[in-house]
Design a protein around this nucleic acid. Structure first.
Lengths: 255, 255
DNA sequence: TGACTTATATGCGTGTAGGATATATGCTCT
DNA sequence: AGAGCATATATCCTACACGCATATAAGTCA
């Protein structure tokens, strides 16, 4: 077997030289990024009003075609960077959507990602030509059942979503609800230092129901995931809570 | 806004007529299916020895190109049907792999699926020209940390895997370990009627560690997911255990 | 018939979650 | 400055699930 190594390698090289990728039809491949933040008990996602066809006038997630020389993760990070200017943000693959007619142009398969950012973060690469909103996500189902979600602008009216993006955002919420109880992702939605109450608010907004305050505090303090800073919040009109920080991984990268 | 509906529709039709999908480079898109079963405390996956280039002689998961007229789910179901003859099997999207150089031919992105079947099931569409094995998965990491896995044949020697299939199988194990404790998927790996011990063996094989027997029984009986059949197993050399069946969903589809 | 093996039932100690209550602390208003 | 207020933080109690141990049941096998 090993003896035939070189000749097999030559065979493979010949095969590769003759290989014609266009022999099989290929769909277009894109990445879309569901950018999620939580503010004042509401889950919000960044959507942009489409200025061109198809689905002109509807709202869509930031996205783009996958280039030949970049991996899927790299494509998602590039899209995020191009549209927001952000570099070191929690970014994870979500699900791949491939319904045949999901895009009227041609067959387009999209690999959806989701990103988590704290609500205080400002978009650096603002594209003034494009209307952008942090739309509130209205989730019409309980638990991890899944389904589509609605988007509402700050002043309450509905923002119609392009393509299957309502489905993508629904999947993002479902994933968050599933991971939140055991994965350290709530911290990604908060600034470097935060109160336990703020973290609890994040959890309640995502899960869609209240959680027991005492148990939440106990579990978190016992987890070792956070450490007290010795500093307290100020100017809150009541007893100030201690500020904590995420203890694992380096969050030094955040502003 | 609504007034301009028809003219906007005409604009979009014109746009679509002129759209040229080949303007952007497109990768090839495939689906790969990690077919999983558990027998005698070992996780196994169906692999086939590649008879052609590239990666000739290595072992790979069943897979194929996504056709223009089928969704990703349909493509995965078709691949499963073509290679095994099975129709109604648990099949779920796993993850999409898109490293630039994962396939030496050209840029190929693959949407990986995993399927769960009971160990008694026989392959109906056996391709005698192709060497096929239910290879044992050796998982060199704990919990849900993730990573690649090794494949071993029944007689113990290592089966080298093609492309990034060791990574795909690792992701499948990781997903199973994550879902098993709270999702009713263990039943998919068992025949219609089974003993609690058999279900526990499945769990232990997947999780990679033993579980407490009493707590396992209590939790499962209290869950309402299974119901007793009143029938007992026979010929086991000790007190026979009661046979249970999965109580939710219709498992009538199974043989 | 008796030894053996595993299933099944029961009881107990412990740890965690949920819930209620009490105290602490900074802000605001008078 | 001091009272009132709202929320953080601490303590205690109860219910329940889990791990563990023990006892009994029901088959096979020598």
């Amino acid at each position: 077997m090993e003896r035939r190594g070189t000749s097999r390698k030559r065979d493979e090289a010949a095969f590769l030289a003759e290989y014609d990728a266009s022999r099989y039809p290929r769909p277009s491949l894109t990445v879309d990024v569901a950018l999620i933040q939580v503010e004042q008990g509401r889950i919000r996602s960044l959507v942009r009003k489409r200025g061109g066809h198809p689905e002109l006038g509807k709202w869509g997630l930031p996205g783009g075609f996958v280039r030949p020389d970049e991996s899927l993760d790299e494509a998602a990070a590039r899209v995020l960077r191009e549209k927001t200017g952000w570099m070191r943000v929690f970014l994870e693959q979500l699900y791949t959507f491939g319904r045949v007619d999901r895009d009227p142009r041609t067959r387009v398969v999209t690999v959806a990602y989701y990103a988590l950012v704290d609500a205080g973060r400002l978009i650096k690469a603002e594209d003034s030509a494009m209307q952008t909103e942090w739309a509130e996500l209205v989730v019409p189902w309980d638990g991890e059942r899944g389904g589509t979600v609605d988007c509402r602008s700050a002043d309450g009216h509905r923002l119609p979503l392009a393509f299957d993006h309502a489905e993508i955002l629904g999947m993002a919420v479902r994933r968050l609800r599933g991971k939140l109880p055991y994965a350290p992702i709530g911290f990604e939605l908060l600034p470097r230092r935060f109160t336990l109450r703020a973290l609890q608010d994040i959890h309640e907004a995502i899960l869609g129901h209240t959680v027991n305050k005492d148990a939440f505090r106990r579990r978190l303090l016992a987890s070792g995931l956070i450490s007290a800073t010795g500093v307290r919040e100020t100017g809150v009109g009541h007893r100030p809570a201690e500020l904590y920080r995420f203890a694992r991984g380096d969050r030094e990268t955040k502003s």
